[in-house]
Simulated assay, not measured.
Amino acid sequence: MSPAPDGPSTLDLASALPHGYRARPSTAEDVDALCHLVGACEREIQGRVQCDPGLVAAELARPGLVPELDTRVVHDPSGALVARAWVNRRSAVDVHPRHRGRGLGAALLDWADARAVQAGSDYIVQTVPDDDAEAVALLRSRGYQRMVTEWLLAFDMPDEPAVPEPPEGVSVRPFPSGDQRAAYELIQDAFDEWQQRRMPYQEWVQHTVERPSFAPAMSALAFAGDQLVGAVVSLDLTDTGDGYIEQVAVRRDHRGRGIARLLLRHAFRAFHRHGRRTCTLGTHSETGALTPYLRMGMQVRHQSTVYRKSLRAT
Rank of each mutant, 00 (worst) to 15 (best):
P67I: 00
R115P: 12
A16W: 07
A58M: 03
S9F: 10
P77N: 14
L108Q: 01
L34T: 00
A119W: 00
W86V: 00
V49M: 10
Q126L: 13
L108W: 02
C35G: 14
V82I: 15
E59P: 00
Q46V: 13
Q126H: 11
G79N: 11
L60C: 04
A85H: 02
V49Q: 12
I45R: 08
A33I: 02
A112C: 06
P25C: 05
S26W: 05
P67M: 00
D110I: 00
D122E: 14
A58S: 05
G79L: 11
A40G: 08
S121L: 04
Q50P: 03
R100L: 11
G103W: 13
G101P: 10
D30N: 10
G103K: 07
D30E: 07
A16E: 08
T10I: 08
T27M: 02
D32T: 15
Q46M: 14
A16D: 04
Q50S: 15
L81W: 02
Q46A: 13
L37V: 09
D110H: 02
D32F: 09
R98K: 15
H96R: 07
H75M: 14
R72T: 12
R62E: 06
D32E: 13
L37E: 05
H19A: 15
D94G: 04
A16C: 11
I124A: 08
C41Q: 05
E42V: 05
R72H: 06
R100I: 13
V73P: 05
L81S: 13
D110C: 13
R24M: 09
V56W: 04
V87N: 04
W86F: 08
L108E: 00
L81Y: 09
L55H: 05
G79T: 12
S121P: 01
L11S: 12
D52A: 11
G103C: 14
A16V: 06
W86I: 01
V87R: 10
A57S: 09
G39W: 10
P18W: 04
I45V: 15
E44K: 15
R100C: 11
L13N: 03
Q46L: 15
H75N: 14
R89Y: 08
R24H: 14
D30I: 01
S9R: 13
A14T: 09
G105S: 09
V128Y: 01
D113R: 14
Q50V: 13
L81F: 06
L13R: 08
D122P: 04
D70L: 00
A116W: 13
A85F: 05
V82R: 01
A23E: 10
G105W: 00
V73C: 06
D76R: 07
R22D: 06
I124N: 02
